[in-house]
Simulated assay, not measured.
Amino acid sequence: MKFKLILLFIFISAGSLFAQQPDPAKKENFADDWAALTKYKKENELLGLPKRGEKRIVFLGSSIFEFWKQKDPDFFKDRPYIDRGISGQISPQLLIRFRQDVINLKPKVVIILAGSNDISGNTGHVTIEKIMDNIKSMAELARLHHIKVILCKYLPINKYPWVEIVDPAEKIIALNNEIEAYAKQRNFTILDYWTPLVDDAKGQRKDLTVDGVHPNLAGYKIMEVVTEMAIKKSLRNAH
């Protein structure tokens, strides 16, 4: 009887051990990574901390920033510019990524471009107040960690090709007014992408965009000029 109990115990233990072994054929489930932290995790590890004297700039945003390094990689080459754009992301996702993709990289400056995907309703409908809450939280985190903040006035958009929405142009303008007012109140640098790209219909100039939302190379070239000016201004104000 005792021998049978010992065999039974060994059998149960072996079965339990076997059940705990991971299935090598099973793919890892990233369903909990709503903000796509895995996208830049390895790249951040390889990047490491800034070198002595390096004035690192992080670009945090969605597709406008992600496509930028694809359209004009030379802008980011040989400069301490770190592009951390992820297509389709809304402002709370940027906020979740802020520690990994901004704070931990120890930049001198962060450029925050947020709000369009929230307005287009990619994953829900939110108010401008809620967008601003997320932008303010990111800006406050940056200031707490001695990172200079550049807040962007969003590019003009009067129609999203993938969704019907009433008056996106006016919503973008309202958001930009809130961003500008907050930036002035907190003494953050303002980067105006709206003014140099806008047409008479409060959308993007046709010669500067591929779809009314995303710039073409000519549009990015204009953005590069105003971006460089904002970075220089922000670094001048750095202590």
Results as ranks from 00 to 15, higher is better:
162 W>V: 12
184 K>W: 09
197 L>W: 04
170 E>M: 15
162 W>I: 11
210 V>F: 06
159 K>V: 02
200 D>C: 02
193 Y>G: 07
166 V>P: 00
165 I>W: 05
140 E>S: 07
198 V>S: 05
199 D>Y: 01
190 I>R: 03
165 I>P: 01
146 H>Y: 11
145 H>Y: 09
171 K>E: 12
166 V>F: 07
197 L>A: 07
143 R>A: 06
144 L>K: 13
171 K>I: 14
209 T>C: 07
171 K>Q: 15
143 R>H: 09
138 M>C: 13
162 W>Y: 13
150 I>L: 04
157 I>Y: 13
167 D>K: 14
212 G>Y: 07
157 I>G: 05
138 M>P: 07
161 P>I: 15
180 E>A: 05
193 Y>N: 12
147 I>C: 04
191 L>E: 00
158 N>D: 12
191 L>N: 01
152 C>E: 14
188 F>C: 08
188 F>S: 00
182 Y>A: 02
194 W>L: 09
139 A>Q: 05
198 V>H: 08
157 I>N: 09
166 V>W: 03
203 G>T: 11
171 K>A: 12
177 N>F: 10
163 V>H: 08
164 E>Q: 10
146 H>F: 07
156 P>V: 11
154 Y>T: 15
172 I>G: 05
212 G>C: 07
183 A>R: 02
212 G>S: 10
176 N>L: 03
186 R>C: 13
208 L>H: 05
154 Y>P: 03
158 N>Y: 03
165 I>K: 06
175 L>E: 03
153 K>I: 00
211 D>F: 05
172 I>L: 13
172 I>Y: 08
207 D>I: 00
158 N>P: 04
202 K>T: 03
169 A>Q: 15
191 L>A: 06
186 R>T: 14
141 L>H: 00
150 I>R: 03
155 L>K: 09
199 D>V: 02
188 F>T: 04
183 A>E: 04
181 A>N: 13
208 L>P: 06
192 D>E: 07
197 L>F: 08
186 R>D: 15
212 G>I: 11
144 L>R: 13
154 Y>C: 15
168 P>A: 00
175 L>D: 01
196 P>H: 11
211 D>V: 02
152 C>W: 03
156 P>A: 14
155 L>C: 10
161 P>R: 15
156 P>N: 09
160 Y>A: 09
